[in-house]
Amino acid sequence: AVTGSQTALLLRAFEKDRFPGIAAREELARETGLPESRIQIWFQNRR
């Protein structure tokens, strides 16, 4: 499950760019500790 702090970080990124590229998703994966594929799905679901 995604924690509150991970969600906050993802929401901030989403406000800046609703369609992040692979580099941005990989950076978010490093920052959150989540797999990049999970980040991609999160953005798809959020849109």
Rank of each mutant, 00 (worst) to 15 (best):
Q40L: 13
Q44L: 07
L28H: 00
A24I: 11
L34W: 12
R47W: 07
A1T: 14
Q44G: 05
Q40E: 13
R46H: 08
R47C: 06
W42M: 02
E31Q: 15
D17F: 05
L28M: 05
V2K: 04
L11F: 05
G33R: 03
P20T: 03
A13R: 02
G4N: 14
W42L: 02
G4L: 14
R12S: 09
R30H: 06
G21S: 14
W42D: 00
R18F: 05
Q6T: 08
I39N: 01
R12T: 06
F14G: 01
L28K: 00
D17H: 07
E36A: 09
E31V: 10
L28F: 02
G4M: 13
R25G: 02
D17T: 05
F14N: 01
G21K: 07
A29K: 03
E36Q: 09
R25S: 03
V2T: 06
F19L: 04
S37I: 13
Q44E: 15
G21Y: 02
P35I: 05
A23T: 10
K16E: 09
R46F: 09
K16L: 09
F43M: 02
R25L: 15
T3I: 06
F43R: 00
T7R: 10
F43C: 00
E36M: 13
G21D: 13
T7Q: 13
K16M: 09
L9D: 03
E27I: 09
Q44A: 10
D17A: 05
F43I: 01
R46L: 07
R12W: 08
G21V: 03
T32H: 00
R38L: 15
D17V: 04
T7N: 13
I41P: 01
L28I: 05
G21H: 06
L34T: 00
R30V: 08
F43A: 00
R25N: 02
G4W: 13
L28P: 00
F43N: 01
L28Y: 02
G33T: 03
Q40W: 08
Q44V: 12
G4F: 13
F19H: 07
E27N: 10
A24F: 10
A29N: 02
T32S: 05
I39F: 01
T32N: 00
T32M: 05
G33Q: 04
A8S: 10
P20N: 01
L10C: 03
R47F: 05
R30I: 07
A1W: 12
L28W: 01
G33I: 01
I41D: 11
A1Y: 14
P20R: 00
F14Y: 12
P20W: 02
W42K: 02
E36Y: 05
S37Q: 11
L34E: 01
A23C: 15
E36L: 07
T7H: 14
G4S: 14
L10F: 01
R46I: 09
R12E: 08
E31M: 14
L9M: 11
E27K: 13
R18P: 15
Q40N: 13
I39G: 01
I41Y: 09
R18T: 06
G4A: 15
K16H: 10
R38K: 09
I22N: 10
R30W: 08
L9V: 14
Q44N: 09
S5F: 13
L10Y: 00
A29I: 05
A8R: 11
R18I: 03
I22Q: 10
E27Y: 10
F43V: 01
S37T: 12
A13M: 08
L34V: 04
G4Y: 13
R25I: 15
A8W: 08
W42I: 01
A29R: 02
T7E: 15
Q6M: 12
L10K: 01
P35W: 03
A24Y: 06
W42S: 00
T7A: 10
L11S: 04
E15R: 07
R47D: 05
A1I: 14
S37P: 08
R46A: 11
A29F: 02
E26I: 10
E27W: 10
F43E: 02
N45S: 08
L9Y: 10
R47G: 04
R12M: 10
P35M: 06
K16Q: 11
S37K: 09
E36N: 05
S5I: 12
E36D: 06
L11M: 15
F19Q: 04
G33C: 02
P20M: 03
E31A: 09
R46Y: 12
R18E: 12
E27Q: 11
S37Y: 12
R25P: 00
L28S: 01
R12D: 08
A29P: 00
E36W: 04
A24L: 06
R38E: 14
R12H: 09
T32Y: 01
K16C: 03
T3S: 12
E15N: 11
A8T: 10
A29G: 06
L11T: 12
L11Y: 05
E31P: 00
E15T: 08
Q6W: 13
A29T: 05
E31N: 08
A13E: 04
Q6G: 03
T32V: 07
E15V: 10
A8Q: 13
P35C: 14
E26D: 06
G4T: 11
S37F: 08
S37M: 11
W42R: 02
P20D: 01
I39K: 01
Q40K: 12
L28T: 01
D17R: 03
R30Q: 10
E15I: 10
A8Y: 10
L10I: 01
Q40R: 15
E31F: 08
D17I: 03
V2L: 15
Q6I: 09
A8M: 13
E36C: 07
G4R: 15
Q44D: 11
A13F: 12
A13D: 01
L10V: 02
E27D: 12
T32F: 01
A8I: 14
N45E: 14
L34G: 00
F43T: 00
F43K: 00
R25V: 15
T3W: 06
R18Y: 04
L9I: 15
A1E: 15
A13Y: 13
A23K: 14
L9Q: 08
L10M: 04
G21Q: 05
V2I: 14
F19E: 07
R12G: 05
P35N: 09
N45P: 04
A23N: 11
R25D: 03
A13Q: 04
A13I: 05
R47H: 05
E26K: 14
I22W: 10
T3R: 05
L9R: 07
E27L: 15
E31K: 11
N45V: 09
E26W: 10
T7C: 14
Q6F: 07
E31H: 08
P20I: 04
R25C: 12
N45D: 09
W42E: 01
S5N: 13
L9G: 03
L10P: 00
T7Y: 15
R38P: 02
I39H: 02
S5H: 13
A13N: 04
S37D: 11
I22E: 11
Q40G: 07
P35A: 10
N45A: 11
P35Q: 07
Q6V: 13
R47M: 10
E36S: 08
A29D: 00
K16Y: 06
I22M: 13
Q40M: 11
S37C: 14
I41K: 12
F14I: 01
S5W: 15
E27G: 05
R38Y: 15
L34F: 04
Q40V: 13
L34K: 00
A13T: 07
R38F: 15
L9E: 03
F19V: 04
W42N: 02
T32R: 01
I22T: 08
E31W: 11
I41R: 08
P35R: 05
A1R: 11
T3F: 07
A23F: 10
P20E: 01
T3Y: 04
G33H: 04
L9C: 04
A24R: 09
D17K: 03
K16P: 04
A23Q: 09
G21N: 12
R38G: 06
Q44M: 08
A1H: 10
E31T: 12
L9S: 07
R46E: 12
N45C: 11
Q40T: 09
E15W: 09
K16S: 08
A24S: 06
A23L: 11
Q44Y: 10
Q44I: 12
I39C: 02
I39S: 01
Q6E: 04
A23Y: 08
R47Y: 06
S37W: 15
I39M: 01
T3N: 09
E27M: 08
K16W: 06
T7K: 14
A8L: 10
I41V: 09
R46T: 07
E26Y: 10
Q44R: 11
I39L: 04
R30Y: 06
T3E: 05
Q44H: 12
Q6K: 05
S37V: 10
T32P: 00
L11V: 12
R47S: 05
A13K: 03
I41Q: 15
A8V: 12
R46S: 06
W42A: 01
A23W: 09
L9W: 07
V2E: 09
L34D: 00
D17S: 07
V2P: 13
R18A: 12
A24E: 11
G4Q: 14
P20G: 01
G33P: 00
R12I: 12
R38N: 05
D17N: 13
E26S: 07
L34I: 09
F14Q: 02
R38A: 14
V2F: 13
